[in-house]
Amino acid sequence: MNIFRLAGDLTHLISILVLLLKIYATKSCSGISLKTQELYALVFLARYLDLFTDFVSVYNTVMKLVFIGSSLAIVWCMRMHRIVKRSYNRELDTFRHYFLVAGSFVLALVVHEKFTLQEIFWAFSIYLEAVAILPQLVLLQRSGNVDNLTGQYVFFLGAYRAFYILNWIYRYFTEQRFGRWISWISGLVQTALYADFFYYYFMSWKNNAKLQLPA
């Protein structure tokens, strides 16, 4: 464990707490893409298949349970909760995310570290996470104004993977054999997808203006 990875995990946790706060405090999920939440639930379920077989540390197991539990709880809330589901922007959240699932799975069948079930699902989860934010970014562009908590949620979600890139650079120089290029490339693509959001987020912060993504 290094400071970059710890910062990344905590930033990821903060993004989830901000999202839970927004939904719980406002009893609303307006501006949140259910499709992105479903993709993240799938990412965690596919990546943590080894939850009960490979014990890494208490921290690792607890965080996996928190990520799986929170993502499923948010999807449940947005689909089933009587009050919350009314504020879901169904008509704006129209990204065909099944293509992202299919594409990532096909790519994982072709490009993986080892042809085992666990490795293929791991690669699938890495590729899917790289594109999972797309429905959310599309929804933000369509819904025009972005409320603060939603903006902060997306910001922390993007920042966490940037910390992971620093973690991979750190591990590359400190551990002889750390060549996990699947994570490298996907992590770079994932962070790059946030680039324009980060730009508009920073500008809105600098000008102390409401965050507006150009349609």
Binding site: H12, D54, N60, K64, F67, R177
Partner: peptide, 10 residues
């Protein structure tokens, strides 16, 4: 060797 497939990251 197995440890290079040992996913210790979240």
């Amino acid at each position: 060797n197995d440890d290079d497939h040992y996913h210790d990251e979240l």
